[in-house]
């Protein structure tokens, strides 16, 4: 296998991983956003705290459900990852990396609130948060491999 083809495959693999995690986050955050906007009760499993977290004052920021912010970040990451995969433009990698880093910090704060303030864990939030963090870790690998000019 030539080096060029190997790099292309590696890019495809990293892009697929990032896009997959972004998609998973989009599903979880989309569900949470819809449930919040329709004042519905999210279906909880494993841990029973979705209602409590969703009903908390921390589930909205500036009048907008927090899940919507996360959804926007996940969608943007997904689209830029696709763009990077198709074009190879390394600058596009900076977008998922930056959004992932911001998400990491926000998730850290939200987990703190869940554990020590709200005293409830939302499984959908956990899935979304884990997906965003894993996607960011893959973007770190991608940036280290493709993010600098050769």
């Amino acid at each position: 296998m030539s080096a060029r083809r190997w790099l292309a495959n590696e890019r495809t693999g990293l892009a697929a991983a990032m896009a997959g995690f972004a998609l998973l986050a989009m599903v979880a955050l989309g569900y949470l956003a819809v449930e919040k906007l329709t004042n519905s009760h999210p279906v909880c499993f494993i841990v029973q705290g979705c209602d409590t977290v969703q009903a908390s004052q921390y589930s909205t920021f500036l009048g907008i459900p927090v899940a919507l912010y996360g959804l926007a970040a996940a969608v943007l990451s997904f689209l830029t990852v696709l763009g990077w995969w198709r074009t190879g433009d390394r600058r596009l990698l900076y977008v998922p990396y930056t959004l992932g880093l911001i998400s990491l910090l926000v998730i850290a704060g939200l987990v703190y609130l869940e554990l020590f303030v709200i005293h409830a864990i939302c499984i959908w939030c956990t899935i979304a948060g884990a997906s965003l963090i894993l996607g960011w870790l893959v973007s770190v690998l991608a940036v280290r491999r493709f993010g600098t000019a050769s």
Binding site: D51, T52, A55, S56, I118, A120
Partner: peptide, 16 residues
């Protein structure tokens, strides 16, 4: 509830 140091988890479960 926070000002009165209530258990928010229990409180919010009760609300629903």
């Amino acid at each position: 509830a926070t000002r009165l140091n209530l258990n928010l988890s229990t409180f919010n479960q009760c609300l629903t």
